[in-house]
Design a protein around this nucleic acid. Structure first.
Lengths: 336, 336
DNA sequence: CTGTTAGCGCGTTCAC
DNA sequence: GTGAACGCGCTAACAG
């Protein structure tokens, strides 16, 4: 492997000049620039990035923490982030916590060891006290998931509004007894979504019914289980608000197996507007989340922080949008 | 940020001794080891990984190239790889080529600049001549996608067998006119799958009919298009072999919209055994690919190469498995 | 405009 | 068992 010294020797110049050419510095004669470039090409020289990192204290690499990649929400988030990072000259390291606080802490150490220039937290598994100390080692940006009263830039979605519009829509459709599904017990995303759910209910004078809440629903299989529980209830809901399209799909699938009609016997609403919500029969009413938008925004906010470590905490929040489909439509009958 | 020198000073020892403790070297008194550990803790010392990389010529980082992460096949591949890499002390950089040869080459440069210790190619966009030169810069392992007559370790799936068993099954069900869908025009995965398809056909004395082939089908929307074309044919197939579950789902969905019955009017088989194949109605007959297995295997093969750059090219190939579901079952009528 | 010189933080021969 | 000294490859003063 040729080093900068080899190039310098071949070009008959100093290492400094070669370095200047590499980094597009001004104050290099066009003539010598050519000389250096030819030498680089002839030797097949490429700068060693460990050396550059050590010298410049910059790795041009960022890490993003998510629970797991198989969740389509996080796949699309990573997809968008990776593209944006690449466009801006950064590498992206994926870190799956699998909901483990310990793994999360281990990944945060990438910041201490200076393996990455910054971290995007798209999931939070530890109490903030555990995470806070890492802020001193480098910039951190929160994306989607967030922590309150914390001095960290965050790009998030208006979950309260999202929960509200979806619930209000169900109420307007005539539903008065609505089951509630969510996952992630200490997630602020889920918490605010629930606030929106409750707000809409209260506007109709309805109070939250904990016996209609399912708080551990993450995937299709969980959705099936939820349905079975609903089916076994003596006083059944006429609609379900599900915090995820997969869960909604599971509920629908199981309901149909057991001969229920959707939405006539049970209206089902999801969240995320994932592919599955468009292909299932009936198609699922859901809330669209601009995932690509928050992904690219988070990357850009982080890179900005990396370049100017001034603590200008500029938060961003984007609205959510209701997508009405078949799984809730046209069964507008008030059932008391 | 404290350095190794600070720790040495505080502990009243030399940098060498500190380094030995960090790297678990023998020949360090238990007493001094404690001393060093206390000093490290007191200062909150953490080794700088750029410096370690520069010195040891090891980054403990690997890159994996895929077309895009949103494809569930690649999400699960990355999920498995990331877990295995982490378990083995490596970081994983995701590289999405988006089917662009140029992007692929850019990512391969990570090997030249020594930003990564090795690369896993799970997708190939360039002619091999373009990729081959990079082998000299570090170990490369191919995973799933492959190139023939090339001296690179590869872990793959027996696509020929996969295509064969699925097609043979359709033939046994009585189908004689089977449409064929695939994506990826220069993929060996697709090529061998097609070989299996043709092999099964020929055993039944049927020749491949190019007018029944759709070679640009990747997603649900493409599946819908495929169906429309099939529906408009004068001489229609009784079954479809689709190279992906999404495409199969799109075909089914569109077919149902237009009032066709599946499998009675058209049997549809997919590939990959993805979630969607279990939830769609009818559920989709498909071929299960052990994605996690090839993911972890590829990571381990690469790490092995990194540790001992001996060119022992040990390839691995795993079998595929047919999963029979509703989308093809029970319409076993010979139609000529 | 260009070259000389000093480290960035660490691991590793060698001597002791 | 331990420490002094060198260099991994590069960039950034500082002179000139």
């Amino acid at each position: 492997m040729p080093t900068i010294a080899d190039v310098a020797k071949l070009a008959g110049l100093s290492r400094t000049t070669v370095s200047r050419v590499i980094n597009n510095h001004p104050y290099v004669t066009e003539e010598k620039r050519k000389l250096v470039q030819m030498a680089m090409k002839e030797l097949g020289y490429v700068p060693n990035s460990s050396a550059r990192s050590l010298r410049s204290q910059r790795t041009k690499t960022i890490a993003v923490l998510i629970p797991r990649i198989m969740n389509p929400f996080f796949s699309s988030l990573i997809e968008a982030m990776e593209m944006e990072a690449t466009d801006r000259g950064y590498q992206l390291i994926v870190c799956q916590t699998h909901y483990s606080p310990q793994r999360e802490l281990n990944y945060m150490k990438l910041l201490q060891t200076k393996q990455v220039d910054g971290v995007i937290l798209a999931s939070i598994q530890n109490e903030w006290d555990m995470l806070k100390p890492f802020l001193e080692y480098g910039p951190v940006v929160m994306c989607n998931e967030f922590e309150e009263n914390v001095n960290v830039p965050v790009v998030k979605l208006n979950q309260l509004q999202g929960g509200y519009i979806l619930t209000k829509y169900l109420l307007q459709q005539g539903h008065r007894k609505i089951a509630y599904c969510c996952g992630g017990y200490r997630s602020n995303v889920a918490r605010y979504r629930e606030k929106g759910f409750r707000k809409a209910l209260s506007e109709y004078g309805i109070s939250f019914d904990e016996t209609l809440a399912f708080r551990n629903a993450y995937n299709i299989e969980d959705g099936r289980t939820v349905f079975r529980e609903i089916a076994s209830m003596s006083s059944k809901p006429s609609a379900v608000f599900s915090g995820g399209d997969e869960v909604a799909a599971g509920i629908i699938s199981e309901a149909k197996r057991q001969g229920w009609r959707i939405p006539e016997d049970l209206a089902v609403a999801g969240f995320d507007n994932q592919e599955i919500s468009k292909i299932i029969e009936p198609t699922i009413t859901t809330v669209h989340q601009p995932v690509e938008l928050i992904g690219t925004t988070a990357v850009n906010m982080l890179i900005k922080q990396i370049h100017s470590p001034v603590h200008t905490v500029d938060n961003r929040e984007f609205p959510l949008e209701l997508i009405e489909r078949e799984s809730t439509r046209g069964n507008a009958v008030i059932r008391v």
